[in-house]
């Protein structure tokens, strides 16, 4: 038991553990041994406009994609919930299908589609593309929390005179908020880390962080790379921690109803 956990951890952590210290290298090379410890490369990233622009782009795209994914995925989940059993199964398969398509296929398809619309290289194209991948994640997590909601709650609200929208706003949304937040975090992280589709759709102005990393990797191997990678990892880690907290806070609600 302890052995298998240890092995799994080693497998996941060791590569990170080997690379991460390089962010604090006092020298200019991406290699061991470290030439003293320093934070100079963190400063270098913060004073480097291209890196800052890439970070800003990533946030812009990820936030936009998350918002769009929330609306589309949330509506899809609500619609699926309201459908009959068989329809619901078909809808489920349909809404989840973007996850099953290889990203490279998706990337090529989107590239041509957006080219026709003249959208290639715009933020909008990236937002739409990432929302396409984020929506199924939102869909699945919202659908799960909707399924955990006793149907009598909405019926009670209806019997008390609440319209469909009112019922959603005052009863369903507050009680399935953990599902929406979980979906949002998944969608955000997905967009923030996405490379393949972004590679096809970015222009120099809309370059996201992973793409900038990719480009820098080809240019020159500097510790700034690892600094950026470390920051990405920390952000993801933080969001995953938030997810774990969400799961805990969502549990008692599911139980006492």
């Amino acid at each position: 038991m302890a052995l298998s956990v240890g092995f799994g951890l080693a497998f996941l952590i060791v590569p990170l553990a080997i690379v991460m210290p390089l962010a604090f290298n006092g020298g200019s090379y991406l290699s061991y041994p470290l030439e003293g410890l320093s934070l100079r490369w963190f400063g270098a990233v913060l004073h480097n406009p291209p890196w800052l622009a890439a970070i800003a782009n990533s946030f812009r795209v990820a936030l936009g994609a998350t918002a769009l994914a929330l609306v589309v995925g949330g509506l899809a989940a609500i619609g699926t919930m309201a459908s009959r059993r068989l329809t619901a199964i078909v809808l489920w398969a349909l809404f989840v299908s973007p996850l099953a398509v290889p990203s490279i296929v998706m990337a090529v398809a989107l590239y041509f589609a957006f080219a026709r619309l003249g959208l290639n290289g715009t933020y909008l194209s990236l937002v739409i593309a990432h929302a396409l991948l984020g929506a199924p994640l939102v869909f699945v997590s919202v659908l799960n929390s909707l399924r955990g909601l006793p149907p009598e709650l909405e019926q009670a609200a209806a019997s008390l005179g609440a319209s469909r929208w009112m019922r959603f706003r005052t009863v369903i949304l507050p009680l399935t908020l953990p599902g929406f937040l979980t979906g949002a975090i998944f969608a955000f992280v997905m967009s923030f880390d996405e490379v393949v589709i972004a590679l096809f759709l970015v222009s120099p102005e809309t370059q996201t962080l992973p793409i900038a990393l990719f480009a820098a990797l080809r240019d020159r191997l500097e510790p700034t790379l690892v600094v950026v990678a470390l920051s990405l990892t920390l952000l993801s880690g933080l969001l995953i921690f938030a997810l774990a907290r969400l799961r805990r806070s969502a549990a008692p609600l599911g139980k006492d109803q």
Binding site: E152, Q155, A156, S159, V171
Partner: peptide, 13 residues
């Protein structure tokens, strides 16, 4: 119509 459900269906939040 007022309606009282078997499980009460109070809003937990």
């Amino acid at each position: 119509f007022g309606l009282v459900f078997q499980g009460y269906a109070l809003f937990p939040h």
